[in-house]
Design a protein around this nucleic acid. Structure first.
Length: 596
RNA sequence: GGGGGCGUAGUGUAGCGGUUAACAUGCCGGCCUGUCAAGCCGGAGAUCGCGGGUUCGAAUCCCGUCGCUCCCGCCA
């Protein structure tokens, strides 16, 4: 080794020892006859002093050294002079007095400062990702990611799971997201697909009798990007045999709790994780992945709203819609009329953006005997207002928001307003982690365009046993044995108990409009496998990137991936994708269209 | 596929019809033996993303285009 110690480990007890350190020059402070170098490696920073009087050769080299040079220093650890300690540094009570210095490699001036975590243009960070990764923020995130994955591997190993790799070159499944295709040289005109997830393979591993499988699996989906979506991402893919819904949920809950409490510096808000029925989540939060760090909830106030003289509410309820209200505790306290009006305007703009025609507001009187304020105050009699406030538990200083429209619009508004209000009021604390299970999903969603049912999870999800008859009579009411784990407003895992009987699987194919002949061509291997003794099984797939993002307090999964793609799915460092040689295309039997 | 934001020295920003294009930081040189956001002095560094247009005159206004980003669609 070119070093005897790391730059993060020397303390007062090492004083007097001769050590050799190696790393990067984080900063250099030149006092003339005395030069200070903050030497950085992955473990920390140690101050090196180079004294012209006692080490003239080392000093001459230190004089040449610049930021990000890679150097090796040999010297003596000593306590810093009294009053010169730096309590902000882990190694701040000591310094290394250099006797010799070697420049292992010089460095050009970097395009941005390594020692600063200030904001930078993303394109620049991605182009020089290897430099960006040197920065403290990225090192912290990447190492946290390692620890999370390490915890998962150890945890599942203790629970009897086997880690098994599955192919990256697999078969296209047009049902889901758009596939990344890989042309076959050996089979002209035919293509592999990169897996959107190892779904089929893990189920086949259950048929194969492994009973408990997991994989830290790379998944690929050729869809447009979001802050929490990349074309390739990593899932903890796992599957178990002879389990019911509760078994999977208990396992994941134990694992997630351990990760937050033992690996991260975040606070777990609720233990055990609350369980919310899909329909209830929509009604209360307008979302199937609600942020549960705060308890803003929407309430159905249709009855009282329709009794008021506000025509919009009356007509909407008559048309079969609901009027939803959300109480914001203290939301109006100390606010002037003009401040409330401005707030309302901003929130209403958000509601209109989601398709609502308006957003009403109301706040109880501050003084006894006073009048409620708000855009709809005059439509409620004192008794009606009192009943409304009673239903909502509203107290003076609270702000109440109302929305009514068709369910889809109301849900969208509920979700958007809830998130926005939480942001404004500082209710979403990034140091807190709030998990919640969403259960009892509908098995299908109606696809009006294609005039068929779409699976709301995926087409291997088993129906609730008691809802099996509904497949023939009323598929839209059938619930799936599906469970999603939400965290801080993101979906961080989704799973289900799978269908393990061929006749049920074929019935599902029929309902989603998949011709049986086509289904056999695409999934024949699955259907056939199910006939060779398939154990009841189920699984789940937590998204590692999103989980680590939340544990790191980041707003974007790029911050926890070493080499992410840009929003246009490009690698700005290597320049991928790129054109290829005509010879390569020829071997693959591919010709490009003129417009490519 | 659609909508919004951004693009000005290496970096982060200001300037928003007429400026010598400004500030901070970094970089280069000089001084300096207790600094740690070191300090002081001096210096270099920008065809204002790219292309076109309007104008006597464009970093500034308009159109197009490229890149980054956020959102909608999409994401079994």
């Amino acid at each position: 080794m070119l070093k005897t110690h790391t730059c993060g480990e020397l303390r007062a007890e090492h004083a007097g020892q001769t050590v050799t350190l190696a790393g990067w020059v984080n900063r250099r402070r030149d006092q003339g006859g005395l030069i200070f170098i903050d030497l950085r490696d992955r473990w920390g920073i140690t101050q090196v002093t180079i004294d012209q009087a006692t080490a003239p050769d080392a000093h001459a080299i230190a004089d040449q050294v610049r930021s990000e040079y890679v150097i090796q220093v040999t010297g003596t650890v000593r306590l810093r002079p009294a009053g010169m300690e730096n309590p902000a540094m882990d190694t701040g009570e000591i310094e290394v007095e250099a006797s010799a210095m070697v420049i292992l490699n010089p460095a050009k001036t970097t395009p941005f400062l390594i020692y600063s975590d200030d904001k930078l243009d993303e394109a620049l960070r991605l182009k020089y990702r290897y430099l960006d990764l040197r920065r403290q923020r990225m090192q912290r995130n990447i190492i946290l990611r390692h620890r999370v994955v390490k915890y998962i591997r150890d945890f599942l190993d203790r629970k009897g799971f086997v880690e098994i790799e599955t192919p990256i070159l697999f078969k296209t499944t047009p049902e889901g997201a758009r596939d990344y295709l890989v042309p076959s040289r050996v089979h002209p005109g035919q293509f592999y697909a990169l897996p959107q997830s190892p779904q089929q393979l893990k189920q086949l591993l259950m048929v194969a009798g492994y009973e408990r499988y997991f994989q830290i699996a790379r998944c690929f989906r050729d869809e447009d990007q979001r802050g929490d979506r990349q074309p390739e991402f990593t899932q903890l893919d796992l599957e178990m045999s002879f389990v019911e819904r509760e078994d999977i949920m208990a396992l994941i809950e134990e694992m997630m709790t351990g990760i937050v409490e033992q690996v991260s510096d975040r606070q777990l808000v609720t233990k055990p994780f609350p369980r919310i029925k899909h329909h209830d989540a929509l009604e209360k939060y307008g979302s199937d992945k609600p942020d549960l760090r705060y308890n803003l909830e929407w309430v159905d106030v249709s009855a009282l709203a329709a009794a008021s003289s506000f025509g919009v509410f009356q007509e909407s309820v008559r048309a079969g819609n609901k009027v939803k209200a959300m109480r914001i505790p203290g939301g109006a306290a100390g606010q002037s009329n003009s401040q409330l009006k401005k707030l309302h305007q901003e929130l209403e703009a958000l509601a209109r953006d989601k398709g609502a025609k308006g957003l009403a507001w109301l706040t109880p009187a501050e003084d006894p005997g006073g009048e409620p304020r708000g855009s709809i105050a005059r439509f409620f009699s004192p008794e009606q207002a009192a009943a409304l406030f009673a239903q909502l538990g509203a107290a003076p200083g609270d702000l109440i928001l109302f929305v009514t429209d068709t369910p889809a619009i109301v849900y969208a508004v509920q979700d958007a307003i809830r998130r926005d209000v939480a942001e404004r009021m500082g209710l979403a604390d990034p140091r807190q982690i709030a998990f919640g299970w969403i259960i009892d999903f509908p098995l299908f969603e109606w696809n009006a365009e294609e005039n068929r049912w779409d699976p709301s999870h995926h087409l291997f999800t088993a129906p609730m046993p008691e809802d099996l008859p509904l497949l023939d009579t009323d598929p839209g009411r059938a619930r799936g044995q599906q469970y999603d784990l939400c965290c801080n407003g993101y979906e961080v895992a989704g799973g289900s108990i799978r269908i393990h009987r061929r006749e049920v699987q074929e019935k599902i194919f029929g309902l989603i409009g998949l011709d049986l002949a086509v289904a056999r061509e695409r999934f024949g291997h699955m259907l056939e496998a199910f006939e060779y003794g398939t154990p009841p099984h189920g699984g789940i797939a937590p998204g590692i990137d999103r989980l680590v993002m939340l544990l790191a307090g980041e707003a974007n999964i790029r911050e926890v991936m070493a080499f992410p793609k840009s929003q246009q799915a490009a690698d700005l460092m290597a320049g991928a994708p790129s054109p290829v040689e005509p010879k390569q295309l020829e071997e693959l039997h591919i010709s490009l269209l003129n417009n490519a």
